[in-house]
Each structure stands twice: as structure tokens, then as C-alpha cells.
Design a protein around this nucleic acid. Structure first.
Lengths: 236, 236
DNA sequence: AATCGCTTAATGTCTATACATAAAAAATAT
DNA sequence: ATATTTTTTATGTATAGACATTAAGCGATT
């Protein structure tokens, strides 16, 4: 009697070893359940997880086929900058540069889904590791969605961390870029001439209501982003 | 009688609306199956998928708790550059710049897991959209893993696409960076002065055997990477 | 007070069975 | 021949029941 994990592993092996090649039809759940001496439900779970992992595609009646990948998937987790700095064993420092309630510019207004004359909270802050600037956080927060933000000074806690606590599971959209640094960025992040910045643009919302729109700006020479090595067996 | 998807949706709603807050204990599968008038298996699947999505954490005997997120997850798919260019409606052109079998430098040698005196295949190629360079591909391929590569000229097909067909489901590791352009990169990618490059470094392997180690270099002004907007309901 | 061992409760997985659903394939009507 | 309907089949989901596994929590012992 084999578990769904064993079965999943065996099937995965047959796929990565190309015993079953892209486009090939896998045996039906029925057939596999006989091969492995278990019920269809067990095989179903194994195959469903392989489908979740993108190894196979399943369609009713048509069966299960090995996928011909057309792209490389990558999963990233973007930690709060304080975590990242402390994990490197550096001393973390946070500095609020600007805080004001104002009418946001066109792009931020649209991203947050605000009316023409609706004010929002603007925050500019800087995060240091061992005294060296690591991240500039330039952000608009929707005050209709988060009126509590007017009460918070953000003098001691970064807006990112504050939001993560206040609005735990928003919908998220990211854009990553390599940009030329503006004069202000160059000054604040203490960049060399021509040193680029790695920017993360993030928009979060919940039930269609915009929460925050932020640009996280990092010195190119001191920052990179990596995917966790989904080591060998896709599943652990 | 409710389906696992409905249940999953209801539970997700209670979490994102903060009716259940981070740290809170959810009712047991038993209790929920009574509330929803279904079997425990159905509730189990709903909760398991919420756990996969990172909304809750489950532990035997301890129960299921709402997660206090400590980072922002992001899933990216990096398409083959030809796809990306053609999707933008641009004319794709591919040019092989260099092809030779040689001893790789230290870093590539280690990434591929080769011996001191083992040769590998080096490829340098350029991908254009509407005649404008979009990606420089600088790559080492492990010939022990892929001896067929010696027979392939790579004059007509990019190494990325060739590999994707030949080795469909490898393990992958990525690093993303904003770099200053080297003189060569500036020339090949027709960059302005001080224009940075967005680089994707990728290592792939199968069963511990290195396959390829590549640097994909993009003009910062013409390239960005985005996560698909996991719109509102995490599940569709 | 700290440690050890037992009980117990929650999740994890499996079996056997049934019906639903989508769509390919075959049969039938136009 | 082509369009339409019916059949068939693989996956999708659900039920009811069982046993496994983990670790929290309690009680007894040191």
C-alpha cells in the first residue's frame, strides 16, 4: 500500500527522467490505482498536486498530460526590510523623513482608487543597516481604508511593518525594475555615480479597495532578490 | 450542503475581514463540518488549501491558526524572451554572438558542479524586439549532462528555448539584480550612459547534476518584471 | 519546581463508494 | 459531407467511516 506522497514522487520521477515526456498522456487514475494497489482518491491527490506544481495538466475526459513548459516559474518572499537587515547580523535603524496628508499625484490616486479631491497619507522613510542606507520607502496610504493611520506618527515603526500588522492578508501586485537613481535617491541612499537602484513597486488592496501604493528603492550594489532553491524534489 | 470551494471562500472571507485575526485559533474540522453540514474531509480540503496559500498554519492537536505574515509572497513566471517580445507585438530576432567549448571560470564551474579540467559549452546570444536589443544571454551548459549540445549549432534557436524543450522540468534558482552595465553590455544592448541593467541569474539542475548557469541581461529602461495580480480571491 | 509518562484532541491519510461534470468520440440526423 | 445528438470516459467532488500521528495538557513522580 503506497501513500499519495510516494505515488506523487514516483510520478514526478517518471516525468523529470523523461520516461514520460511533455505532451505524453499519463495512465488514468483508475489504471494507476491498480498499479499502486490503492484507491482512486489517493492517486487523485498525487496527480492533483503535480498539477498544482505545474508538472502536468488535467482535463476531464481528456486525461492527464505532461506539460511542455513555456516559462520558468519563480517564487519569491519579500521580507520586511528590518528582518532582512537583522538576518544579516546588521544593526537596524529606521528614520522617518516625511509625513503629510495631501492630494496624491495622478498615478498613486488611480492605484489607490481615490476621488479627485481625496487626500491620502504620504510617507517617506529610510532604513539603515549598520548605519548604511539600505531601503528608501516612498508611500501613499489610503486614509478611507485606514483612518487609524492619521493617529500613527510612524516615528518608531516603519509603515511596511505597521501595515503588515494592521492589514494582514491583502491582495498584492509587484513590479520590479532596475532604474537610474534620481538625484534625491542618490543623496539619500549614498550612491556612487551611475549606481543604479533596484526598485520594488507594490500595490495592495482588499475587496477592491486600495490600501497602499509604495516604491521601495534599494542601492543596486547592496541589494538582490533570490528565489528559494526549490531543491530537487519539488515537494519536501 | 456546501462545496469545499464555498467553505474555503467563507473561511478566507472571515480571515481577510479580520473577523478571525492573526494568531486566532479556527474552529476544529469537526466543528466546522457541523456548521457547514458536510463531512470532515470537505472541510479538511478547504483548510488545507488555505494553508497552502499561506493564510493559516495547521498543526496536529494544536489546531489551525491565522498566520501573522512576516513577508510578502510573490510569484513570477519568467517567459522565454521570444514569447515576451512577440506578445508585445514586436518582431523577434535572435543572434548568436559566440559559441565555444572551454574551461569555465571558477563561479560557473562550481555552479555546474564540474571538475577542474572539465570543459563546458559557452554561449553568448542577443535577442531583439523590433530591431532593438532586449536581452543578452551569457551562458554555460554542462556537456556531461547534455552531450547533445555539442551537435547543436544554436544558430537558429536560442539556448533558453532549446533547453526548455530538452530538459523540461529542472530545479531552478534565480537571483535578480540591478547592475551597472559593463562596457560590453552597454555596447551590445545599445544603452545610454549610466543606464543600468536588470539581470536575472539562473541556475538549473536535475538530480543534483548541474545543467546550465546563465546571466540574462536586460536594459533597465526597457524591461521590468511583474507578479500576476492574484486578484482578490486568492483562488479563482 | 522540574521531569516523565499517560491521555486525549486535532489534524493527516486512507478506503470504498457514489454521483457530477466536462468533453472526446461515436452514432445519428440533416 | 456536415451538423446534431447521444454515449462514453476521465476527472472532480462528496460521503461515511477508519486508523495513524503528533503534540498539547494533565497528572504523577522525582
Amino acid at each position: 500500500m503506497r501513500s499519495y506522497k510516494e505515488i506523487r514522487g514516483i510520478l514526478q520521477e517518471r516525468i523529470t527522467s523523461q520516461q514520460w515526456q511533455p505532451g505524453d498522456l499519463l495512465p488514468s487514475e483508475q489504471a494507476l490505482s491498480e498499479e499502486f494497489g490503492c484507491t482512486r482518491a489517493t492517486v487523485n491527490r498525487a496527480m492533483r498536486e503535480l498539477a498544482d506544481a505545474g508538472l502536468v495538466e488535467r482535463r476531464r475526459k481528456a486525461g492527464t498530460r505532461v506539460v511542455q513548459p513555456k516559462s520558468h516559474p519563480a517564487t519569491i518572499t519579500i521580507p520586511v526590510i528590518r528582518q532582512e537587515i537583522e538576518n544579516k547580523g546588521q544593526a537596524y535603524k529606521y528614520l522617518l523623513l516625511e509625513r503629510l496628508e495631501a492630494l496624491p499625484p495622478e498615478d498613486a490616486r488611480i492605484q489607490l482608487g481615490l476621488n479627485q479631491n481625496e487626500k491620502a497619507l504620504f510617507l517617506k522613510s529610510l532604513h539603515y543597516g549598520d548605519g548604511i542606507p539600505q531601503q528608501l520607502d516612498v508611500r501613499w496610504i489610503n486614509l478611507s481604508a485606514l483612518p487609524e493611520a492619521t493617529e500613527e506618527s510612524f516615528a518608531d515603526i516603519g509603515p511596511n511593518e505597521w501595515l503588515l500588522q494592521r492589514v494582514p492578508h491583502p491582495s498584492i501586485e509587484h513590479v520590479f525594475r532596475a532604474d537610474k537613481a534620481t538625484a534625491e535617491e542618490q543623496r539619500l541612499l549614498q550612491l556612487e555615480d551611475c549606481e543604479p537602484v533596484f526598485t520594488i513597486e507594490r500595490r495592495t488592496w482588499i475587496s477592491g479597495q486600495g490600501i497602499t501604493y509604495v516604491r521601495l528603492v534599494h542601492p543596486g550594489s547592496r541589494y538582490h532578490m533570490a528565489t528559494r532553491s526549490s531543491d530537487e524534489p519539488i515537494f519536501s
